[in-house]
Design a protein around this nucleic acid. Structure first.
Lengths: 249, 249
DNA sequence: AGAAGGACCAGTGGTCCGTA
DNA sequence: AGAAGGACCAGTGGTCCGTA
Protein backbone atom coordinates (compact mmCIF):
# COMPACT_ATOMS: atom_id res chain seq x y z
CA UNK A 1 0.00 0.00 0.00
CA UNK A 2 2.88 2.41 0.67
CA UNK A 3 3.55 2.17 -3.00
CA UNK A 4 6.84 1.75 -4.78
CA UNK A 5 6.35 5.26 -6.05
CA UNK A 6 8.35 6.26 -3.03
CA UNK A 7 11.41 4.57 -4.46
CA UNK A 8 11.72 7.63 -6.62
CA UNK A 9 12.41 9.60 -3.45
CA UNK A 10 15.85 8.14 -3.23
CA UNK A 11 18.21 10.31 -5.18
CA UNK A 12 19.65 8.62 -8.19
CA UNK A 13 23.28 7.73 -7.94
CA UNK A 14 25.07 6.84 -4.78
CA UNK A 15 28.09 8.09 -2.94
CA UNK A 16 31.15 6.13 -3.79
CA UNK A 17 34.03 4.68 -1.92
CA UNK A 18 36.79 2.39 -3.08
CA UNK A 19 36.05 -1.26 -2.51
CA UNK A 20 37.70 -3.07 0.38
CA UNK A 21 39.17 -5.96 -1.60
CA UNK A 22 40.78 -3.60 -4.04
CA UNK A 23 42.44 -1.65 -1.28
CA UNK A 24 43.66 -4.86 0.30
CA UNK A 25 45.04 -6.08 -2.98
CA UNK A 26 46.67 -2.72 -3.56
CA UNK A 27 48.09 -2.54 -0.05
CA UNK A 28 51.35 -4.27 -0.83
CA UNK A 29 53.97 -5.35 1.67
CA UNK A 30 51.78 -7.53 3.86
CA UNK A 31 53.48 -9.71 6.42
CA UNK A 32 52.99 -13.31 5.55
CA UNK A 33 50.37 -15.94 6.29
CA UNK A 34 47.84 -13.88 8.21
CA UNK A 35 47.88 -11.18 5.57
CA UNK A 36 47.31 -13.76 2.87
CA UNK A 37 44.35 -15.26 4.68
CA UNK A 38 42.67 -11.93 5.40
CA UNK A 39 40.50 -11.99 2.32
CA UNK A 40 39.16 -15.45 3.06
CA UNK A 41 38.80 -15.45 6.83
CA UNK A 42 37.16 -12.91 9.06
CA UNK A 43 39.64 -10.71 10.81
CA UNK A 44 39.45 -11.92 14.36
CA UNK A 45 42.14 -9.71 15.77
CA UNK A 46 40.89 -6.22 16.44
CA UNK A 47 40.17 -5.90 20.11
CA UNK A 48 41.31 -9.34 21.10
CA UNK A 49 42.57 -9.62 24.63
CA UNK A 50 43.97 -13.15 24.80
CA UNK A 51 47.03 -12.47 22.60
CA UNK A 52 46.29 -15.46 20.49
CA UNK A 53 47.93 -16.31 17.24
CA UNK A 54 45.94 -18.02 14.51
CA UNK A 55 47.84 -19.79 11.77
CA UNK A 56 46.34 -21.42 8.72
CA UNK A 57 48.17 -24.52 7.63
CA UNK A 58 46.28 -25.64 4.56
CA UNK A 59 45.86 -22.41 2.72
CA UNK A 60 46.82 -24.05 -0.53
CA UNK A 61 44.65 -22.85 -3.37
CA UNK A 62 41.65 -21.34 -1.68
CA UNK A 63 42.46 -17.74 -2.47
CA UNK A 64 43.42 -18.11 -6.07
CA UNK A 65 40.04 -17.70 -7.75
CA UNK A 66 39.55 -13.93 -7.87
CA UNK A 67 35.89 -13.72 -8.67
CA UNK A 68 35.88 -10.02 -9.35
CA UNK A 69 37.81 -10.39 -12.56
CA UNK A 70 40.93 -8.50 -11.63
CA UNK A 71 41.53 -4.91 -10.62
CA UNK A 72 38.92 -3.04 -12.62
CA UNK A 73 38.75 0.19 -10.63
CA UNK A 74 35.13 -0.16 -9.50
CA UNK A 75 33.83 1.70 -6.52
CA UNK A 76 31.72 0.54 -3.60
CA UNK A 77 28.54 2.52 -3.27
CA UNK A 78 27.21 4.05 -0.11
CA UNK A 79 23.81 5.64 0.37
CA UNK A 80 23.50 9.40 0.44
CA UNK A 81 23.16 10.76 3.94
CA UNK A 82 19.74 11.67 5.27
CA UNK A 83 18.64 15.24 5.78
CA UNK A 84 15.65 16.51 7.74
CA UNK A 85 12.80 16.96 5.30
CA UNK A 86 9.17 17.90 5.77
CA UNK A 87 6.52 15.29 5.01
CA UNK A 88 6.19 15.01 1.25
CA UNK A 89 9.39 16.89 0.56
CA UNK A 90 11.94 15.31 -1.75
CA UNK A 91 15.57 15.80 -0.78
CA UNK A 92 17.69 17.67 -3.30
CA UNK A 93 21.33 17.13 -4.12
CA UNK A 94 23.14 14.02 -2.91
CA UNK A 95 20.81 13.56 0.04
CA UNK A 96 17.90 11.35 1.06
CA UNK A 97 14.78 12.56 2.83
CA UNK A 98 12.91 11.18 5.82
CA UNK A 99 9.96 9.85 3.82
CA UNK A 100 12.50 7.65 2.09
CA UNK A 101 13.91 6.58 5.47
CA UNK A 102 10.48 5.52 6.68
CA UNK A 103 9.86 3.80 3.38
CA UNK A 104 12.86 1.57 4.07
CA UNK A 105 11.06 0.30 7.18
CA UNK A 106 8.05 -0.59 5.07
CA UNK A 107 10.32 -2.42 2.66
CA UNK A 108 11.84 -4.41 5.49
CA UNK A 109 8.35 -5.35 6.57
CA UNK A 110 7.65 -6.68 3.10
CA UNK A 111 10.88 -8.69 3.13
CA UNK A 112 9.94 -10.10 6.53
CA UNK A 113 6.54 -11.16 5.19
CA UNK A 114 8.25 -12.96 2.33
CA UNK A 115 10.65 -14.69 4.69
CA UNK A 116 7.70 -15.68 6.88
CA UNK A 117 5.80 -17.13 3.93
CA UNK A 118 8.79 -19.18 2.86
CA UNK A 119 9.29 -20.46 6.41
CA UNK A 120 5.63 -21.40 6.83
CA UNK A 121 5.72 -23.18 3.50
CA UNK A 122 8.70 -25.23 4.54
CA UNK A 123 7.40 -25.88 8.03
CA UNK A 124 10.35 -24.03 9.54
CA UNK A 125 10.55 -21.64 12.46
CA UNK A 126 8.86 -18.41 11.47
CA UNK A 127 10.42 -15.10 12.54
CA UNK A 128 8.12 -12.48 14.06
CA UNK A 129 10.73 -9.73 13.96
CA UNK A 130 13.13 -8.26 11.43
CA UNK A 131 16.09 -10.56 12.11
CA UNK A 132 19.51 -11.02 10.56
CA UNK A 133 17.87 -13.54 8.25
CA UNK A 134 15.57 -10.83 6.90
CA UNK A 135 18.47 -8.44 6.31
CA UNK A 136 20.31 -11.20 4.48
CA UNK A 137 17.22 -11.90 2.39
CA UNK A 138 16.83 -8.21 1.54
CA UNK A 139 20.43 -8.03 0.41
CA UNK A 140 20.05 -11.14 -1.75
CA UNK A 141 16.89 -9.65 -3.23
CA UNK A 142 18.97 -6.69 -4.40
CA UNK A 143 18.07 -4.17 -1.70
CA UNK A 144 21.72 -3.52 -0.89
CA UNK A 145 20.83 -0.14 0.58
CA UNK A 146 19.13 -1.88 3.52
CA UNK A 147 21.41 -2.85 6.38
CA UNK A 148 21.03 -3.62 10.04
CA UNK A 149 23.01 -0.80 11.68
CA UNK A 150 21.10 1.83 9.74
CA UNK A 151 17.66 0.37 10.39
CA UNK A 152 18.37 -0.11 14.09
CA UNK A 153 19.74 3.40 14.34
CA UNK A 154 16.48 5.06 13.33
CA UNK A 155 13.90 2.59 14.69
CA UNK A 156 12.62 4.99 17.32
CA UNK A 157 12.16 7.71 14.70
CA UNK A 158 10.00 5.31 12.72
CA UNK A 159 8.17 4.42 15.94
CA UNK A 160 7.19 8.04 16.48
CA UNK A 161 6.06 8.24 12.86
CA UNK A 162 3.84 5.17 13.46
CA UNK A 163 2.47 6.09 16.85
CA UNK A 164 1.85 9.82 16.42
CA UNK A 165 2.28 10.93 12.85
CA UNK A 166 1.11 14.46 13.65
CA UNK A 167 3.76 14.90 16.33
CA UNK A 168 6.36 13.32 14.06
CA UNK A 169 5.48 15.68 11.22
CA UNK A 170 5.56 18.72 13.49
CA UNK A 171 9.00 17.72 14.78
CA UNK A 172 10.32 17.34 11.26
CA UNK A 173 9.05 20.78 10.26
CA UNK A 174 10.47 22.40 13.37
CA UNK A 175 13.91 20.81 12.95
CA UNK A 176 14.03 21.59 9.26
CA UNK A 177 13.12 25.22 9.97
CA UNK A 178 15.87 25.51 12.55
CA UNK A 179 18.35 23.96 10.13
CA UNK A 180 19.18 21.10 12.49
CA UNK A 181 21.01 18.07 11.20
CA UNK A 182 19.70 14.50 11.15
CA UNK A 183 21.47 13.56 14.35
CA UNK A 184 19.75 16.32 16.29
CA UNK A 185 16.36 15.38 14.88
CA UNK A 186 16.98 11.73 15.71
CA UNK A 187 17.83 12.60 19.31
CA UNK A 188 14.71 14.72 19.59
CA UNK A 189 12.51 11.77 18.62
CA UNK A 190 13.07 10.07 21.96
CA UNK A 191 11.23 12.57 24.15
CA UNK A 192 7.75 12.40 22.60
CA UNK A 193 8.00 8.60 22.72
CA UNK A 194 8.77 8.66 26.42
CA UNK A 195 5.73 10.90 26.89
CA UNK A 196 3.57 8.40 25.03
CA UNK A 197 4.96 5.60 27.20
CA UNK A 198 4.18 7.59 30.35
CA UNK A 199 0.54 7.77 29.32
CA UNK A 200 0.41 4.01 28.80
CA UNK A 201 1.93 2.63 31.98
CA UNK A 202 5.55 2.85 30.78
CA UNK A 203 5.36 -0.44 28.93
CA UNK A 204 7.23 0.40 25.75
CA UNK A 205 7.25 -3.24 24.63
CA UNK A 206 3.46 -3.38 24.84
CA UNK A 207 3.27 -0.13 22.86
CA UNK A 208 5.45 -1.52 20.09
CA UNK A 209 3.62 -4.84 20.04
CA UNK A 210 0.20 -3.22 19.85
CA UNK A 211 1.09 -1.53 16.56
CA UNK A 212 1.15 -3.95 13.62
CA UNK A 213 3.91 -2.19 11.70
CA UNK A 214 6.01 -1.51 14.75
CA UNK A 215 5.67 -4.91 16.40
CA UNK A 216 8.19 -6.42 13.98
CA UNK A 217 10.99 -4.17 15.29
CA UNK A 218 13.02 -4.73 18.42
CA UNK A 219 12.62 -1.96 20.97
CA UNK A 220 15.87 0.04 20.89
CA UNK A 221 17.94 -0.31 24.05
CA UNK A 222 18.26 3.42 24.57
CA UNK A 223 14.51 4.03 24.30
CA UNK A 224 13.90 1.26 26.80
CA UNK A 225 16.44 2.79 29.17
CA UNK A 226 14.98 6.27 28.84
CA UNK A 227 11.49 4.98 29.65
CA UNK A 228 12.82 3.10 32.65
CA UNK A 229 14.79 6.08 33.99
CA UNK A 230 11.89 8.44 33.46
CA UNK A 231 9.43 6.07 35.13
CA UNK A 232 11.64 5.84 38.20
CA UNK A 233 12.14 9.57 38.54
CA UNK A 234 8.44 10.16 37.91
CA UNK A 235 7.59 7.64 40.64
CA UNK A 236 10.09 9.26 43.01
CA UNK A 237 8.75 12.78 42.52
CA UNK A 238 5.14 11.64 42.78
CA UNK A 239 5.86 9.83 46.00
CA UNK A 240 7.48 12.99 47.36
CA UNK A 241 4.60 15.23 46.34
CA UNK A 242 2.15 12.57 47.49
CA UNK A 243 3.91 12.59 50.84
CA UNK A 244 4.07 8.88 51.50
CA UNK A 245 3.31 5.58 49.82
CA UNK A 246 2.75 5.74 46.08
CA UNK A 247 -0.82 6.57 45.27
CA UNK A 248 -2.34 5.99 41.86
CA UNK A 249 -2.63 9.75 41.21
CA UNK B 1 0.07 -24.76 42.49
CA UNK B 2 1.91 -27.93 41.44
CA UNK B 3 3.29 -27.96 44.94
CA UNK B 4 6.84 -28.62 46.06
CA UNK B 5 5.55 -31.85 47.53
CA UNK B 6 6.57 -33.30 44.21
CA UNK B 7 10.21 -32.67 45.00
CA UNK B 8 9.95 -35.74 47.16
CA UNK B 9 9.38 -37.74 43.99
CA UNK B 10 13.03 -37.40 43.07
CA UNK B 11 14.93 -40.23 44.65
CA UNK B 12 17.41 -39.10 47.24
CA UNK B 13 21.03 -39.40 46.29
CA UNK B 14 22.40 -39.04 42.81
CA UNK B 15 24.46 -41.10 40.46
CA UNK B 16 28.09 -40.20 40.64
CA UNK B 17 30.84 -39.66 38.15
CA UNK B 18 34.39 -38.40 38.61
CA UNK B 19 34.78 -34.69 38.06
CA UNK B 20 36.23 -33.42 34.78
CA UNK B 21 39.01 -31.26 36.22
CA UNK B 22 40.29 -34.08 38.35
CA UNK B 23 40.56 -36.38 35.39
CA UNK B 24 42.35 -33.75 33.37
CA UNK B 25 44.82 -33.13 36.17
CA UNK B 26 45.39 -36.86 36.47
CA UNK B 27 45.85 -37.38 32.74
CA UNK B 28 49.60 -36.85 32.64
CA UNK B 29 51.80 -36.81 29.55
CA UNK B 30 50.05 -34.09 27.56
CA UNK B 31 51.78 -32.73 24.49
CA UNK B 32 52.78 -29.14 25.13
CA UNK B 33 51.14 -25.75 24.89
CA UNK B 34 47.70 -26.69 23.68
CA UNK B 35 47.39 -29.38 26.31
CA UNK B 36 48.37 -26.92 29.00
CA UNK B 37 45.75 -24.45 27.87
CA UNK B 38 42.93 -26.98 27.71
CA UNK B 39 41.70 -26.26 31.22
CA UNK B 40 41.47 -22.52 30.61
CA UNK B 41 40.24 -22.27 27.03
CA UNK B 42 37.35 -23.98 25.39
CA UNK B 43 38.44 -26.86 23.24
CA UNK B 44 37.82 -25.58 19.75
CA UNK B 45 39.23 -28.53 17.94
CA UNK B 46 36.73 -31.33 17.88
CA UNK B 47 35.09 -31.39 14.50
CA UNK B 48 37.02 -28.55 12.98
CA UNK B 49 37.40 -28.75 9.23
CA UNK B 50 39.76 -25.90 8.43
CA UNK B 51 42.89 -27.60 9.80
CA UNK B 52 43.67 -24.62 11.89
CA UNK B 53 46.23 -24.49 14.61
CA UNK B 54 45.66 -22.28 17.64
CA UNK B 55 48.64 -21.30 19.74
CA UNK B 56 48.57 -19.38 22.98
CA UNK B 57 51.51 -17.08 23.45
CA UNK B 58 50.93 -15.51 26.84
CA UNK B 59 49.95 -18.42 28.96
CA UNK B 60 52.09 -17.16 31.80
CA UNK B 61 50.40 -17.59 35.12
CA UNK B 62 46.72 -17.90 34.29
CA UNK B 63 46.40 -21.55 35.15
CA UNK B 64 48.19 -21.57 38.45
CA UNK B 65 45.31 -20.86 40.82
CA UNK B 66 43.61 -24.22 41.31
CA UNK B 67 40.40 -23.16 42.95
CA UNK B 68 39.30 -26.64 43.92
CA UNK B 69 41.94 -26.93 46.61
CA UNK B 70 43.86 -29.84 45.24
CA UNK B 71 42.87 -33.40 44.41
CA UNK B 72 40.30 -34.21 47.04
CA UNK B 73 38.56 -37.13 45.35
CA UNK B 74 35.06 -35.62 45.13
CA UNK B 75 32.56 -36.88 42.62
CA UNK B 76 30.33 -35.07 40.18
CA UNK B 77 26.68 -35.93 40.57
CA UNK B 78 24.32 -36.86 37.80
CA UNK B 79 20.56 -37.31 38.01
CA UNK B 80 19.10 -40.77 38.11
CA UNK B 81 17.70 -41.86 34.77
CA UNK B 82 13.98 -41.63 34.14
CA UNK B 83 11.75 -44.66 33.94
CA UNK B 84 8.21 -44.88 32.62
CA UNK B 85 5.85 -44.52 35.57
CA UNK B 86 2.09 -44.26 35.79
CA UNK B 87 0.56 -40.99 36.97
CA UNK B 88 1.05 -40.75 40.72
CA UNK B 89 3.59 -43.54 40.86
CA UNK B 90 6.89 -42.89 42.61
CA UNK B 91 9.93 -44.46 40.98
CA UNK B 92 11.79 -46.98 43.11
CA UNK B 93 15.52 -47.61 43.21
CA UNK B 94 17.93 -45.19 41.60
CA UNK B 95 15.36 -43.92 39.12
CA UNK B 96 13.14 -40.89 38.61
CA UNK B 97 9.52 -41.02 37.49
CA UNK B 98 7.65 -39.04 34.86
CA UNK B 99 5.68 -36.92 37.35
CA UNK B 100 9.05 -35.67 38.50
CA UNK B 101 10.07 -35.00 34.89
CA UNK B 102 6.98 -32.88 34.31
CA UNK B 103 7.54 -31.16 37.62
CA UNK B 104 10.91 -29.95 36.32
CA UNK B 105 9.04 -28.10 33.56
CA UNK B 106 6.90 -26.38 36.18
CA UNK B 107 10.04 -25.42 38.07
CA UNK B 108 11.56 -23.91 34.94
CA UNK B 109 8.38 -21.91 34.51
CA UNK B 110 8.79 -20.52 38.02
CA UNK B 111 12.41 -19.61 37.32
CA UNK B 112 11.35 -17.88 34.13
CA UNK B 113 8.76 -15.86 36.05
CA UNK B 114 11.44 -14.76 38.48
CA UNK B 115 13.78 -13.78 35.65
CA UNK B 116 10.92 -11.86 34.04
CA UNK B 117 10.16 -9.98 37.24
CA UNK B 118 13.77 -8.99 37.68
CA UNK B 119 13.96 -7.82 34.07
CA UNK B 120 10.77 -5.77 34.31
CA UNK B 121 12.01 -4.22 37.50
CA UNK B 122 15.24 -3.15 35.87
CA UNK B 123 13.59 -2.03 32.66
CA UNK B 124 15.48 -4.65 30.68
CA UNK B 125 14.38 -6.89 27.86
CA UNK B 126 12.00 -9.48 29.21
CA UNK B 127 12.23 -13.09 27.98
CA UNK B 128 8.99 -14.83 26.99
CA UNK B 129 10.60 -18.25 26.67
CA UNK B 130 12.85 -20.46 28.76
CA UNK B 131 16.19 -19.19 27.48
CA UNK B 132 19.81 -19.85 28.35
CA UNK B 133 19.49 -17.02 30.83
CA UNK B 134 16.76 -18.93 32.68
CA UNK B 135 18.84 -22.13 32.78
CA UNK B 136 21.74 -20.11 34.16
CA UNK B 137 19.47 -18.56 36.77
CA UNK B 138 18.13 -21.98 37.78
CA UNK B 139 21.64 -23.29 38.24
CA UNK B 140 22.64 -20.28 40.32
CA UNK B 141 19.52 -20.77 42.41
CA UNK B 142 20.77 -24.25 43.24
CA UNK B 143 18.63 -26.29 40.85
CA UNK B 144 21.67 -28.00 39.39
CA UNK B 145 19.54 -30.90 38.19
CA UNK B 146 17.94 -28.63 35.58
CA UNK B 147 19.82 -28.34 32.32
CA UNK B 148 19.03 -27.37 28.77
CA UNK B 149 19.70 -30.63 26.88
CA UNK B 150 17.46 -32.59 29.22
CA UNK B 151 14.60 -30.12 29.17
CA UNK B 152 14.71 -29.76 25.41
CA UNK B 153 14.86 -33.52 25.01
CA UNK B 154 11.50 -34.11 26.65
CA UNK B 155 9.59 -30.93 25.71
CA UNK B 156 7.17 -32.72 23.44
CA UNK B 157 6.38 -35.24 26.19
CA UNK B 158 5.48 -32.36 28.45
CA UNK B 159 3.45 -30.85 25.62
CA UNK B 160 1.31 -33.96 25.37
CA UNK B 161 0.87 -33.91 29.13
CA UNK B 162 -0.36 -30.29 28.89
CA UNK B 163 -2.55 -30.64 25.82
CA UNK B 164 -4.20 -33.99 26.46
CA UNK B 165 -3.49 -35.30 29.93
CA UNK B 166 -5.81 -38.26 29.45
CA UNK B 167 -3.98 -39.43 26.35
CA UNK B 168 -0.64 -38.81 28.04
CA UNK B 169 -1.67 -40.87 31.06
CA UNK B 170 -2.96 -43.70 28.90
CA UNK B 171 0.31 -43.76 26.98
CA UNK B 172 2.32 -43.93 30.18
CA UNK B 173 0.25 -46.84 31.50
CA UNK B 174 0.51 -48.71 28.22
CA UNK B 175 4.27 -48.29 27.95
CA UNK B 176 4.83 -49.19 31.58
CA UNK B 177 2.72 -52.31 31.14
CA UNK B 178 4.72 -53.35 28.11
CA UNK B 179 7.95 -52.75 29.98
CA UNK B 180 9.18 -50.21 27.44
CA UNK B 181 12.08 -47.93 28.27
CA UNK B 182 11.97 -44.15 28.46
CA UNK B 183 13.32 -43.70 24.96
CA UNK B 184 10.50 -45.71 23.45
CA UNK B 185 7.89 -43.83 25.45
CA UNK B 186 9.46 -40.54 24.42
CA UNK B 187 9.31 -41.51 20.74
CA UNK B 188 5.69 -42.54 21.10
CA UNK B 189 4.72 -39.10 22.40
CA UNK B 190 5.15 -37.55 18.95
CA UNK B 191 2.26 -39.27 17.22
CA UNK B 192 -0.65 -38.08 19.39
CA UNK B 193 0.74 -34.54 19.11
CA UNK B 194 0.76 -34.73 15.34
CA UNK B 195 -2.86 -35.90 15.50
CA UNK B 196 -3.74 -32.90 17.66
CA UNK B 197 -1.98 -30.61 15.19
CA UNK B 198 -3.91 -32.18 12.30
CA UNK B 199 -7.18 -31.24 13.99
CA UNK B 200 -6.02 -27.63 14.42
CA UNK B 201 -4.78 -26.71 10.97
CA UNK B 202 -1.25 -28.07 11.48
CA UNK B 203 -0.06 -24.93 13.24
CA UNK B 204 2.01 -26.43 16.03
CA UNK B 205 3.37 -23.01 17.03
CA UNK B 206 -0.17 -21.70 17.53
CA UNK B 207 -0.99 -24.78 19.60
CA UNK B 208 1.99 -24.23 21.88
CA UNK B 209 1.33 -20.51 22.17
CA UNK B 210 -2.33 -20.98 23.05
CA UNK B 211 -1.42 -22.96 26.16
CA UNK B 212 -0.06 -20.78 28.96
CA UNK B 213 2.33 -23.37 30.39
CA UNK B 214 3.50 -24.58 27.01
CA UNK B 215 3.92 -21.18 25.37
CA UNK B 216 7.19 -20.60 27.22
CA UNK B 217 8.86 -23.58 25.48
CA UNK B 218 10.35 -23.58 22.01
CA UNK B 219 8.65 -26.01 19.66
CA UNK B 220 11.07 -28.92 19.20
CA UNK B 221 12.54 -29.14 15.71
CA UNK B 222 11.57 -32.76 15.25
CA UNK B 223 7.95 -32.19 16.22
CA UNK B 224 7.78 -29.29 13.80
CA UNK B 225 9.22 -31.45 11.04
CA UNK B 226 6.84 -34.32 11.73
CA UNK B 227 3.86 -31.99 11.56
CA UNK B 228 5.10 -30.53 8.31
CA UNK B 229 5.77 -33.92 6.72
CA UNK B 230 2.42 -35.27 7.86
CA UNK B 231 0.58 -32.21 6.59
CA UNK B 232 2.14 -32.58 3.18
CA UNK B 233 1.37 -36.26 2.83
CA UNK B 234 -2.15 -35.67 4.16
CA UNK B 235 -2.65 -32.94 1.58
CA UNK B 236 -1.30 -35.18 -1.17
CA UNK B 237 -3.54 -38.11 -0.33
CA UNK B 238 -6.60 -35.88 0.05
CA UNK B 239 -5.97 -34.27 -3.32
CA UNK B 240 -5.67 -37.75 -4.82
CA UNK B 241 -8.84 -39.03 -3.21
CA UNK B 242 -10.56 -35.74 -3.97
CA UNK B 243 -9.55 -36.22 -7.59
CA UNK B 244 -8.37 -32.67 -8.35
CA UNK B 245 -7.74 -29.39 -6.59
CA UNK B 246 -7.64 -29.48 -2.81
CA UNK B 247 -11.05 -29.22 -1.30
CA UNK B 248 -11.69 -28.26 2.29
CA UNK B 249 -12.98 -31.76 3.18
C1' DA C 1 31.97 17.79 11.86
C1' DG C 2 28.27 14.43 10.71
C1' DA C 3 27.00 10.10 8.94
C1' DA C 4 26.71 5.23 6.61
C1' DG C 5 27.66 0.44 7.35
C1' DG C 6 31.35 -3.56 7.57
C1' DA C 7 32.56 -6.29 10.81
C1' DC C 8 33.10 -7.61 15.33
C1' DC C 9 31.73 -9.80 19.90
C1' DA C 10 29.27 -11.75 23.79
C1' DG C 11 26.03 -14.54 24.64
C1' DT C 12 21.84 -17.78 22.02
C1' DG C 13 19.45 -21.84 20.32
C1' DG C 14 20.25 -26.21 19.26
C1' DT C 15 22.09 -30.71 19.98
C1' DC C 16 26.17 -33.88 19.45
C1' DC C 17 28.88 -37.03 21.39
C1' DG C 18 32.33 -38.22 25.00
C1' DT C 19 30.96 -40.27 29.30
C1' DA C 20 29.41 -43.72 32.62
C1' DA D 1 22.24 -50.75 25.15
C1' DG D 2 20.06 -46.76 27.28
C1' DA D 3 20.54 -42.33 29.15
C1' DA D 4 22.23 -37.67 31.35
C1' DG D 5 24.47 -33.38 30.30
C1' DG D 6 29.10 -30.72 29.31
C1' DA D 7 30.47 -28.40 25.80
C1' DC D 8 30.54 -27.19 21.21
C1' DC D 9 29.08 -24.53 16.92
C1' DA D 10 26.66 -21.77 13.51
C1' DG D 11 24.35 -18.09 13.23
C1' DT D 12 21.94 -13.78 16.48
C1' DG D 13 21.28 -9.26 18.45
C1' DG D 14 23.60 -5.39 19.21
C1' DT D 15 26.58 -1.67 18.02
C1' DC D 16 31.45 0.06 17.68
C1' DC D 17 34.61 2.26 15.15
C1' DG D 18 37.49 2.41 10.93
C1' DT D 19 36.03 4.94 6.90
C1' DA D 20 35.05 8.82 3.82
Amino acid sequence: DTANALDALSQEGLSEEPVQQEKEAAGSGGSGAWEAAAGERKQQQRRRKGHRKVVDIDNDDENENDENGGAGGYERQREHPFIVTEPGEVARGKKNGLDYLFHLYEQCREFLIQVQNIAKDRGEKCPTKVTNQVFRYAKKAGASYINKPKMRHYVHCYALHCLDEEASNALRRAFKERGENVGAWRQACYKPLVTIAARQGWDIDAIFNAHPRLAIWYVPTKLRQLCHAERNSAAASSSVSGGGDDLPF
